[in-house]
């Protein structure tokens, strides 16, 4: 793995739900302007890890974090952390596309409306910029004020990404963003992920090993609630250090949906 600094790190972190450990002794880092894939079997703690990075589990009763989770060197679970500012800096795209029952335009600027209400006059330009960034502008420019629910699932997911981009996060966490999409939409999202890393750091949880191989720079293999291996993506696919990693990643070209 390259020596470029990590924008976000977990240092000996352990996550508990009602006293039960879900993740343990997690040490990992996420390089700036890189796409880090998080892979592992269902129940290995991938989503928990992702949600921990933006403190989305805070509302969950019995959730506890031990160890350190740092953003640019600052502990995010420490006293004095502005959790709202943290979530703005570390955006999240969910597994299933979530659009509010509002127009496409209002969805695109939903976060901006609250975080920068003084920029109201610039919202149209901001909406156009983020919709272009997710390659959706040409498809929706003539129906910006139509309900967002009229878009296809793939378009809705791109709109959700645009809405996240509008608040300008440094890190974007993606939790299986293509799992509910058809192959064509999945390809569009994959291209988008690659294009976004110029300006953002991305962490992608995925079950599609071929997808991870195509878009990720680094890879993190989770197993039984802990990190078993982390490294450069191709290096881990070609030359994994552990037998378990090899067994898991060797299935990358099996049962892959045709794209």
């Amino acid at each position: 793995m390259s020596k470029i600094k990590n924008v976000m790190e977990m240092d000996n972190a352990a996550i508990f739900y009602n006293g039960k450990p879900v993740l343990d002794k997690v040490c990992c880092g996420f390089r700036v302007n890189a796409v880090t894939g998080v892979v592992g079997a269902s129940g290995s703690g991938k989503t928990t890890l992702l949600r921990t990075l933006s403190r989305l589990n805070d509302r969950v009763g019995g959730f506890r974090v031990h160890g350190q989770v740092r953003l640019e060197g600052h502990e995010i679970y420490g006293n004095g952390t502005d959790v709202y500012q943290l979530r703005r800096r570390v955006g999240m795209v969910f597994q299933k596309p979530v659009v509010f029952p509002k127009s496409i335009f209002k969805n695109a600027v939903f976060g901006l409306k609250h975080l920068a209400p003084e920029m109201k006059k610039e919202f149209p330009q901001a909406a156009e910029r983020v919709l272009r960034e997710v390659f959706l502008w040409d498809e929706v420019k003539d129906r910006l004020h139509k309900p967002a629910q009229t878009l296809s699932q793939g378009q809705q997911q791109r709109l959700a990404i645009a809405r996240t981009l509008a608040v300008d996060p440094e890190i974007i966490l993606m939790d299986e963003p293509t799992s509910s999409l058809d192959p064509k939409s999945s390809t569009a999202i994959e291209e988008l992920i690659v294009s976004l890393k110029n300006r953002h750091t991305l962490v992608l949880v995925t079950h599609h090993l071929a997808q991870a191989r195509r878009v990720c720079d680094d890879l993190l293999f989770l197993n039984e609630g802990t990190v078993w291996e982390q490294g450069g993506c191709l290096e881990m696919f070609e030359n994994p250090k552990r037998k378990e990693t090899h067994e898991y990643l060797s299935r990358w070209n099996v049962d892959e949906p045709a794209v």
Partner: peptide, 21 residues
């Protein structure tokens, strides 16, 4: 819950969450 979490993930504070979600 997806609406609440989306609001949270965009950095909305409690009041904004109540008002908009």
């Amino acid at each position: 819950e997806k609406y609440r979490e989306t609001g949270m993930s965009l950095g909305l504070d409690h009041l904004a969450q109540v008002r908009s979600v």
